[in-house]
Design a protein around this nucleic acid. Structure first.
Lengths: 148, 148
DNA sequence: ACTATCTCGTTCATCGTTGAACTAAATGCG
DNA sequence: CGCATTTAGTTCAACGATGAACGAGATAGT
């Protein structure tokens, strides 16, 4: 296996990933309630899965977006009462974000809205395959992340 | 395995894919020569790999972007002399795009520029893993594509 | 032949992200 | 302690993609 073949393999993978990303977020965007973007839903989902209070900068790192983008997303979420943002008592520069009860409800609504979204896809892609691909993707993401 | 668990698995996969996409295109963008976007490079790459003449609409479908986005990309490529766009003799609405010699040279330059990009990543991700993930991603992409 | 429908490529307003600049606060070092 | 550096969050111009509207040309049914 020479260098060029390896590079080509990576290119193809990134190409597939780029297209899948476009197709899947497009699909998701369509079924989400009005006023909810994929970015906003992802943040709500994150809080439901992991819980607790997160600083905006930590969220930005977790999602690999700039701080500016996260500021924007959080402001929209707060305006809808879906998250609560308070000052960090331990650091006057920082803030802490947490999901509200309304936010949890909205996340539930969103999840339910995605119900029929994957029907046709899960018919052709076995869950075993998803389970096989996931750890590899995580590894790749972490490798990219670590050496940014 | 119930419905909700399956959905969560898909969410996690799409989340990883979204982040990988951001990180990898970011990396690529950085090493590309000035004036070359990832979108433009992808089109050049496409032509080198598959050759021939392609209508803009066909390119748009292949890359899963809107016709408007492809118009934009092609105009930039043509302005730099990297592709040639001619009228389709068989269809007065359509055009045909092909890569130029200058375009091939530029693509070569870009590919060379990506050389050191993956060094640290390929150290932690085995090529076998890429080879294992690729067919699954292709399958997923095709499934999403088919039922758009 | 006529008409309705579809397709091709372009344009434009809108949206979300980036990257840089900025203020304020924390941290580290001599 | 004092000063330089780093970090947190915000703002803003620029960019690329979307989706809708449009004119021009192809296509199919009657």
């Amino acid at each position: 296996m020479n260098q060029d073949e390896a590079r080509l393999l990576y290119f193809r993978m990134f190409n597939e990933i780029g297209i899948i990303n476009q197709l899947s977020s497009n699909r998701l965007e369509r079924v989400l309630p009005d006023g909810m973007s994929v970015a906003q839903f992802s943040v709500l989902n994150h809080f439901v899965r992991l819980g607790g209070q997160w600083a905006p900068s930590r969220l930005a790192r977790a999602f690999q977006v700039t701080k500016g983008a996260m500021t924007n997303t959080l402001q929209r979420l707060e305006a809808q009462g879906l998250v609560k943002i308070v000052a960090d008592p331990a650091d006057a520069r920082a803030k802490l974000v947490e999901i509200t009860a309304v936010g949890r409800k909205m996340r539930e609504t969103c999840v339910r809205a995605t119900g029929p979204m994957m029907g046709d896809v899960s018919a052709s892609l076995q869950l075993d395959e998803v389970r096989a691909a996931l750890p590899i993707l995580e590894k790749l993401r972490k490798a990219l992340d670590a050496t940014r």
